[in-house]
Design a protein around this nucleic acid. Structure first.
Lengths: 214, 214
DNA sequence: CGCCATTGTTACCTACGGTAACCCTAGACT
DNA sequence: AGTCTAGGGTTACCGTAGGTAACAATGGCG
């Protein structure tokens, strides 16, 4: 049948795509974000045009690669955020999960945060932060959702929770980036200090009725 | 005399350098961070090799340019941070100063934060965040200094203040980046929300003996 | 005048993103 | 069988951008 045949083809195409992404992953892990398309193609045992057939352009490949890692990290963070423990403990676990991830694979982290200028589409205005944004934006929105679900912020809670979500993610990111560069203290210490910073305000906000609170 | 002559030369070289930087500034303001060396040279009315004689490589030019803007922003922030007002008001003013700056010149902001991969010096290990770092690092250290000077954090205050400095700067940066992209609320609202987030913890830390406290 | 430092230019090299044109092998159809 | 076509693959190329070597002009200074 032609349908099974098409399905077969699609499946093999997806499999190939995964192979290619894995090769790209290895190269990025080795060379950092400035990994060249040639290098990736070579690692995959093929040549450039195939990469372009699969991913369109470098930005496409990078987006696909970033999505994999972002999804993985987000999953880990979600479980940490949803774990059955008291609020403060969960915050610490979440921070620690993030820091452990960036500590374990700095090259991947660099790639996700500084994807080496992909699109230079002419002038689309104030789109600041299209580059390092995707991961941080997704994290921020995710956290905002969790905050709004679980904490009673009073009126205007939607906006406030988003500001806080992105602010807290920014804090985690900024401190993490600095820490990864200088290693001025242990991970545990960093987690505790950041949680302390957050705790002041988070501590005297009352839980929303029902649910274990953020 | 040769000394005056040398001085003269140095002075003119510095003046030239300033001219070139101003030209580069205009181009970056117009084209964003991916401004090419050719474009900058053209804007300055000369050709590439002169740029290279003055700045070594693209990274050098970018660093010089970044330093100018970073210094300017840092000055503005320092005055906001040192203004004679109560602590909370100063925090808000500082946040607002930063946000107003990035709002006023997004292209410059993008350039400072995402300087398009300068150095690809082979393998210098875990130097994550060399790219967008300089400005944020300087801000973080500056804030850490202010915090440690003015707030009593108990033992281990040096490390804690640095973590908080970089954390808070990260918060400001992250939230600002998101806000600049989506404009979900007014600047005043953003400032208030962020200050609220910080205020919880900052509020119940007692001032260090002497001085008006952070 | 002749020397040399400064300032500039042209012309080139390299590397990379991206693409066009072609090749080839495995099946499907007659 | 023989032909035709779809996919996966390659070579060879283009444009652009960073970076440099080699050479020209200008202007003080012995």
């Amino acid at each position: 049948m032609e349908t099974t045949q098409q399905a077969e083809q699609q499946r093999s195409a997806r499999a190939r795509r995964r192979q290619l992404l894995e090769a790209a992953d290895r190269v990025v892990l080795r060379d950092g974000p400035q990994a060249s398309m040639n290098a990736i193609a070579a690692e995959a045992g093929i040549t450039k045009p195939i990469l372009y057939r699969h991913f369109g352009d470098k930005g496409g490949l990078y987006r696909a690669l970033a999505k994999r890692h972002t999804d993985a990290l987000l999953d880990a963070l979600r479980t940490a955020l949803d774990a059955p423990a008291e609020r403060r403990r969960r915050v610490e676990t979440t921070l620690d999960t993030y820091l452990a991830a960036i500590e374990a694979r700095p090259q991947v982290y660099r790639f996700l945060m500084h994807p080496a200028e992909d699109a230079q589409l002419p002038e689309q205005g104030f789109d600041v932060g299209r580059h390092s944004a995707p991961l941080l934006r997704r994290l921020g929105e995710e956290l905002a959702k969790v905050i709004e679900e679980r904490v009673d912020l009073g009126p205007d809670s939607e906006q406030l929770s988003r500001v806080w979500g992105h602010g807290i993610v920014g804090m985690m990111h900024g401190a993490g980036d600095w820490w990864l560069g200088e290693r001025p203290c242990s991970r545990e210490q960093l987690v505790r200090s950041l949680a302390d910073l957050l705790w002041g305000r988070l501590a005297d906000v009352s839980d929303r009725a029902g649910g274990p609170g953020f």
